[in-house]
C-alpha cells in the first residue's frame, strides 16, 4: 500500500555514505512487509538495494547469506553435495506464508529483522547455528547468534541505525542430518509450530523450535536424548517465555503439537 507519510527515499551508494539515522527512518529491502501495513510513524526510507551488501556466497567455510538476497535466490542456490542439510533451505522457503511471488522480492534479512515467530528464515538460520553480522551506525561490526538476534515478537537486537549485513552459516552445520516438521491451522497457513532437528556425525543433537514460541528456542544435547528428557527440556526452555498466542494457534495447542513434532524429529534422527 502507499506509505503516505514517507517524504523521502534515500538511496545511498555505499555503506560509507549512509545518512545519519533519524527517528522515522526505516531500512528498505524487499519492502514486502514494510508496504504491507500502514506505517504512520515513518518518514524516510533508506533503500538497501543500492548499497551492494556482500552477495550470498558459498565457500568452504560455509554459507554467507546476504541480508538483501531474496528468498527466491536462496531457493535456487546450488549447494555442495556434502551439505546434506540443504533440503532445509527449500523446506523453509516453502514455510513462508507468502507465495513464490513474495519470494521474488522478500529478503532473507528482512525475514529475520521482522522477527515474527513464524519467520522461516529465522528457523533456518537458528537451526544451522547462524551468526548475524551487524554494522553499527559508527561503522563498527558486531556478531550475534540468530538466537540472540531475535529477542521477541517483532523485537530484535538491532540498535537504531544498525544494519543486518547477512548471516554466516558454518559449513559444519550444513553437514548435519536434519529433520523438519511444520504444522498450521490450514494447509498453507502461517506456521503454528515449526521445528527443526539436527544431528552431526559426533552424535550431537539439537532441536530448534520456532513459530510456537515468541522467539526461537534451541535445545542442544550431546547425544539423542530419551523421549522424556527431550520433553522435559522443552518444558524447561519454554517456562519463562511460554507459548505464542495469536490467531494462528492457541498456546496449549502449540505446546502440544510441538511436543508431538519434537518426538517425531527425535525418532527420525535417532535412526
Amino acid at each position: 500500500m502507499d506509505l503516505d507519510t514517507i517524504t523521502a527515499v534515500l538511496r545511498p551508494p555505499s555503506l560509507d555514505e549512509l545518512p545519519p539515522w533519524q527517528d522515522g527512518d526505516a531500512w528498505l529491502a524487499g519492502g514486502t512487509w514494510l508496504f504491507s501495513e500502514p506505517q504512520p510513524g515513518l518518514t524516510r526510507l533508506i533503500d538497501l538495494s543500492t548499497l551492494a551488501l556482500p552477495a550470498t556466497e558459498v565457500s568452504e567455510a560455509g554459507l554467507w547469506l546476504s541480508a538483501t538476497g531474496t528468498i527466491a535466490e536462496l531457493d535456487r542456490l546450488a549447494l555442495p553435495n556434502d551439505w546434506i542439510a540443504a533440503p532445509l533451505v527449500g523446506q523453509c522457503c516453502r514455510a513462508l506464508l507468502g507465495s513464490f511471488k513474495i519470494w521474488n522480492r522478500a529478503s532473507v534479512g528482512g525475514n529475520l529483522c521482522m522477527a515474527l515467530p513464524a519467520g522461516p528464515m529465522i528457523a533456518l538460520t537458528a537451526a544451522l547455528d547462524g551468526l548475524c553480522r551487524l554494522r553499527r551506525p559508527d561503522g563498527m561490526a558486531r556478531r550475534l547468534p540468530v538466537t540472540d538476534f531475535v529477542l521477541g515478537v517483532q523485537r530484535t537486537a538491532l540498535a537504531p541505525g544498525e544494519i543486518l549485513l547477512g548471516i554466516d552459516v558454518p559449513a559444519a552445520a550444513l553437514k548435519r542430518r536434519t529433520a523438519f516438521r511444520r504444522i498450521a491451522l490450514s494447509p498453507e497457513g502461517r506456521s503454528g509450530a515449526l521445528l527443526i532437528g539436527t544431528r552431526d556425525r559426533a552424535g550431537d543433537f539439537a532441536l530448534t523450535i520456532t513459530a510456537a514460541t515468541p522467539r526461537p528456542v534451541r535445545l542442544a544435547f550431546a547425544t539423542v536424548p530419551a523421549a522424556p528428557d527431550l520433553q522435559a527440556a522443552l518444558a524447561a526452555a519454554t517456562e519463562t517465555d511460554g507459548w505464542y498466542d495469536d490467531v494462528h494457534g492457541a498456546p496449549d495447542w502449540r505446546r502440544h503439537v510441538s511436543g508431538l513434532l519434537a518426538e517425531e524429529i527425535r525418532e527420525e534422527l535417532a535412526r
Binding site: T32, F35, I102
Partner: peptide, 27 residues
C-alpha cells in the same frame, strides 16, 4: 487487500510475477 495477501494486483516486473501493492514504485 493492498497488503500482499490476495494477489489481485499481480503484475509482471521484467517477466517475474510480483504483488504490485508491495513494490515501491520508484524501484
Amino acid at each position: 487487500c493492498d497488503a500482499g495477501d490476495c494477489g489481485a494486483c499481480t503484475v509482471h516486473l521484467d517477466g517475474e510475477p510480483v504483488h504490485s501493492c508491495l513494490l515501491p514504485a520508484f524501484q
